[in-house]
Design a binder for these strands. Structure first.
Lengths: 142, 142
DNA sequence: TTCTACTTGCAAGTCGTTTGCATTTGTGAT
DNA sequence: ATCACAAATGCAAACGACTTGCAAGTAGAA
């Protein structure tokens, strides 16, 4: 879990805190997430880094960062997998036409409602994660 | 959109209402969804139907049923795509270990909260769909 | 500086899904 | 009933996202 604004934090410290060996690849991947403060996928990263990092390595890095909690997966109903820095809890509104994304904050009311769902549940007594994404047409596409 | 309990409705009427030619394949696919009242994917359908329907046809049928609104896609963080009869609005709690699924109803409070999100949004003035799925360990796996 | 375990690149493989094409089938008109 | 034709299906090949095995490179501790 990060606890600073994505734009300016110490990449190396983040890696060390998560017991990673510091490599140019890992620094570059984190930097790409910081520069583009929105969900991105493997293909985007490869393009942005100009093919300097191998595709397979990008996938391995993303998957590893997700396990350690640096990144979180986001379901955007696209054909490939998107990740995001796991720094603050929010969700997305996604334009189904142009792909435009707007964030919205998780709030206490939503949390309360989800807790109530779990209380009412017969099969579950706690939940660890949830996805909540809205889909529609943005003002431009509409 | 269906408006009857999934267990007992007229498959042929459903197809006709949606301007489909009635074929054994389509009837069998709908029936599989009715019998197994939960999200299922292409592989499951092929197995249940004993390979009587070609894999490619199953994919084509699912995709077509989704477009016409008979089915809805469900994001369950699995490696393949799951669908569900689009008959009543609900969400899921999914066990990340064994895959057990429990439904919970969409309620007015959740709808209100989501409407508020849209009101606060700068880029969107309405949404068409949303996903809301909870993930955790069920009582058995916990 | 050296050693070792971890990381990376490359190429091949996997898996879910899609597509092109030839054949079959449902349905409305005859 | 039968016909004609558009639509649906099966088959095999292709596709795209992702994974894996292995050999070579590299970070970091000693």
């Amino acid at each position: 879990m990060l606890n600073k604004k994505p734009q300016n934090f110490d990449f190396k410290k983040l890696l060390k805190d998560n017991k990673y060996i510091i490599t140019p690849t890992r620094l570059a991947v984190i930097e790409t997430f910081c520069k583009n403060n929105r969900p991105i996928g493997a293909e985007f990263i490869c393009k942005k880094l100009n093919g300097k990092i191998n595709e397979a390595t990008v996938y391995r890095t993303l998957s590893s960062f997700e396990k350690s909690g640096i990144l979180r997966k986001v379901d955007l109903r696209k054909d490939s997998t998107y990740f995001e820095l796991n720094n603050d809890h929010h969700h997305h509104i996604v334009c189904t036409k142009c792909g435009e994304i707007e964030d919205f904050k998780e709030n206490i009311e939503i949390e309360k409602l989800l807790k109530k769902v779990v209380v009412d549940s017969k099969k579950f007594k706690s939940i660890e994660e949830h996805s909540l994404e809205l889909f529609g047409l943005c003002r431009v596409c509409n």
